[in-house]
């Protein structure tokens, strides 16, 4: 990981991003950058605006103010499907697989924006369409193998247990050939062993595909073990940013997570003794 300050190295550049829901400011002018091949975590207490931030980057919500630049181009006004086509793939906090479809079909849906065949080419099964389908299937199986689900390729996705569904969602997001992968709590609800495997998978996906990864995470083991940079949101505002170690020591962060100590004068005196 070479951290250069060259601006072409920045894949996602967010400035002053704000989202208001009526009187509530869910995200309050957040500046944020992700560099190529970087793994960045977005953390913060519940309701800090992390998912809202994600949804604005992915185009699900229209920002109230601010701009999102991806690969040097503004994403303003683009619909979610256009943003996926530009190269941002995502997973969802509460897994959103196509439960009636097979695993392979789920991954193929992920490739939608990279495939071209229209309905008439499919009706006539033109050679170009057949070639494209075969290649897509091969690629889909390779992705399923990567997340170790290839042997269930023809199983309905809804039949998978929870941890495996998370892995499938990852493969599906990768199928859109993203340059930036948004992972919304990738280890939520996982047992410790599954979590360790997921950390390994995310890191290796980054290494193999060269994607930048932006993740929302509550599990501090994941955040500290995986991310190169951490950004902390609280009440919609960015309160800290830096390496995992910096953030862990940051007073604002400790306060946001644990609350402020209301000190009485006598405590202050006692503190002096213990420290």
């Amino acid at each position: 990981m070479t951290a250069s300050n060259d601006s072409s190295d920045v894949v996602l550049d967010v400035t002053g991003l704000t989202k208001r829901f009526g009187g509530l400011i869910a995200v309050d002018s957040v500046d944020f950058q992700v560099r190529r091949r970087q793994i960045v975590s977005l953390i913060g207490p519940n309701g800090a605006g992390k998912t809202t931030f994600f949804n604005m980057v992915a185009g699900q919500y229209e920002p109230s103010a601010g701009r999102v630049i991806f690969n040097g181009k503004a994403l303003h006004g683009l619909r979610p499907h256009q943003i996926t086509a530009r190269g941002i793939g995502r997973t969802f906090q509460n897994i959103r697989l196509f439960t009636n479809e097979t695993l392979l079909e789920n991954v193929l849906v992920g490739m939608h924006s990279r495939l071209k065949s229209g309905p008439f080419a499919s009706l006539l099964r033109l050679p170009s369409q057949r070639r494209e389908e075969n290649e897509a299937r091969e690629k889909g199986m390779a992705l399923l193998h990567l997340v170790r689900l290839d042997r269930y390729a023809n199983e309905a996705a809804g039949n998978l247990p929870y941890g495996m569904q998370r892995r499938l969602e990852m493969a599906r997001a990768l199928a859109s050939e993203p340059q930036l992968l948004l992972l919304d709590e990738p280890t939520a609800g996982m047992n410790p062993q599954e979590t360790v495997n997921m950390i390994a998978l995310i890191r290796r996906v980054r290494d193999a595909f060269g994607v930048a990864v932006l993740l929302i995470e509550h599990d501090m083991q994941v955040v500290m073990g995986l991310s190169e940079r951490v950004t902390v949101l609280n009440y919609g505002q960015k309160i800290a940013e830096g390496t995992p170690l910096d953030v862990q020591r940051n007073d604002n962060v400790i306060e946001a997570y644990l609350g402020r100590r209301h000190k009485r004068p006598e405590d202050e005196a006692a503190d002096g003794g213990t420290h």
Partner: peptide
Amino acid sequence: IRLRNSRLGRAWAAIRDDEIAAQGMGINP
């Protein structure tokens, strides 16, 4: 059958199962 097993057919199924996720996968609803 051909339509069902095509890019468009998969997009239909995706929209039916979860429109938000389908958009996130690059499908124009």
